[in-house]
């Protein structure tokens, strides 16, 4: 049998045991990395979005250099791919997908959700995004709004800056951040109140 066809959990244990014995990667290092990776979550992206909604200078920074904008809020970007941010407007709705694998703005949103990695999302998002969003997320993009699908194929990672929903006038950043969901920053949903 091809050794790679071994049960995956056993394969992981064997590889980790060998790497530890050889002094290449220790268990402590893996555990520490798991903890830092687990800490990234959509709340970080939500804080960036909320700040951009209330602070025009921050919004300009976010749209010109997402990495610097993330760092400005204390998010660790060192060693991470550069972050680009695409702005939704009354004229354009952005949707991010990775048709080749699963590139995702992990530094600011955390692990990609299950659906983002699925074959059907990857296939449908580029070809029929309006039908995909309407049927799966009940997100209906009006005909007058252009849909721009961003296929994340290379070294950047892309996040969407959603449109601030009506009815949030006067809200502070913390309150705004709470209405921003993971899907809003990929473009499968839009924030509402």
């Amino acid at each position: 049998m091809n050794i790679l066809e071994t049960d995956s959990a056993r394969l992981l244990t064997a590889v980790r045991t060998l790497l530890e014995q050889k002094g290449i990667v220790s268990t402590a290092e893996v555990m520490e990395r798991m903890a830092t990776t687990d800490a990234a979550n959509p709340g970080q992206g939500g804080r960036m979005v909320a700040k951009a909604w209330v602070d025009p200078a921050y919004r300009a920074l976010l749209l010109s250099d997402g990495t610097k904008a993330a760092e400005a809020l204390g998010i660790m970007m060192r060693g991470m791919p550069p972050l680009g941010v695409l702005e939704n407007t009354p004229e354009v709705h952005n949707l991010v997908v990775c048709t080749l694998c699963s590139c995702y703005p992990r530094a600011v949103l955390g692990y990609p959700p299950f659906w983002y990695k699925s074959a059907s999302f990857r296939a449908r998002a580029v070809r029929d995004p309006r039908e995909l969003l309407a049927s799966e997320w009940k997100t209906v993009i009006p005909d007058a709004v252009k849909v721009r699908v961003v296929d994340s194929t290379a070294d950047y990672r892309w996040m969407v800056l959603p449109v601030r929903p009506a009815g949030t006038e006067g809200w502070d950043e913390a309150r705004l951040a709470r209405i921003v969901r993971e899907g809003d920053m990929i473009g499968v949903t839009v924030p509402g109140i």
């Binding site: 059907s120 296939a123 049927s135 799966e136």
Partner: peptide, 8 residues
């Protein structure tokens, strides 16, 4: 995959 639903 065009007619396959997405598990959201």
């Amino acid at each position: 995959f065009m007619c396959e639903s997405v598990d959201i």
